[in-house]
Simulated scan of single mutants.
Amino acid sequence: MTDRTRPTPRICPACDGFASAAISLGGRDSRGHLRTITVHCRDCHGTGTLPARTATLTGGRA
């Protein structure tokens, strides 16, 4: 009996798997820390992968 393998996760085409990025706002605060914000991919919501598409039958026999 062979081992069952899990399907490979689909990498998000919008971000290529790099779902989060830290972007500098420029300048520093009063303590000298660089001001940054974290931005997430809109398509995958910061996970880097998309769920597998499910096949749907439309107007065909089952």
Rank of each mutant, 00 (worst) to 15 (best):
I37F: 04
H40R: 13
H45F: 14
G32S: 11
G27Y: 04
R31C: 06
C15W: 01
T8F: 05
G60H: 03
D29I: 03
G26D: 09
H40Y: 07
D43H: 11
D16H: 13
D43M: 11
G32H: 10
L25K: 11
T54S: 11
A19W: 00
I11N: 01
R10K: 15
D3G: 00
G32W: 07
A52D: 12
T54H: 08
L25W: 02
T36Q: 14
P13S: 01
R42K: 10
G60Y: 02
R10M: 10
T5M: 11
D16F: 04
A52R: 15
T54Y: 04
T5I: 09
G48N: 07
G17D: 00
A22E: 12
R53I: 07
R10H: 09
L57I: 15
R6H: 03
F18A: 13
R53G: 14
H45K: 15
G48Y: 01
P9K: 14
A52W: 11
R35T: 11
P7C: 05
T38M: 09
T49H: 13
D16P: 00
T5W: 06
S20P: 00
R61Q: 14
R61E: 11
P9Y: 05
T38L: 08
D3C: 02
V39D: 04
G46P: 01
C12T: 02
T54C: 06
T5N: 09
I37Y: 02
R10Q: 09
R28T: 14
T47L: 06
C12S: 06
G17H: 01
S24L: 05
M1S: 05
R31G: 10
R35C: 11
P51T: 12
T58E: 10
P13M: 00
V39I: 15
H40N: 10
T8V: 10
T58S: 11
A22L: 08
V39S: 12
T2G: 09
G59E: 07
G59N: 06
S30E: 15
G59T: 03
F18H: 11
S20F: 01
R31A: 13
F18W: 03
T49R: 13
L25E: 08
G32P: 07
G17C: 04
P7M: 08
G46W: 03
T47S: 15
A55E: 13
T56C: 06
R6F: 06
L50C: 02
C15A: 10
R6D: 04
T49L: 08
A14K: 09
H33N: 15
P7A: 13
T38F: 01
A14I: 04
T36G: 05
T36D: 06
A14V: 12
H40F: 03
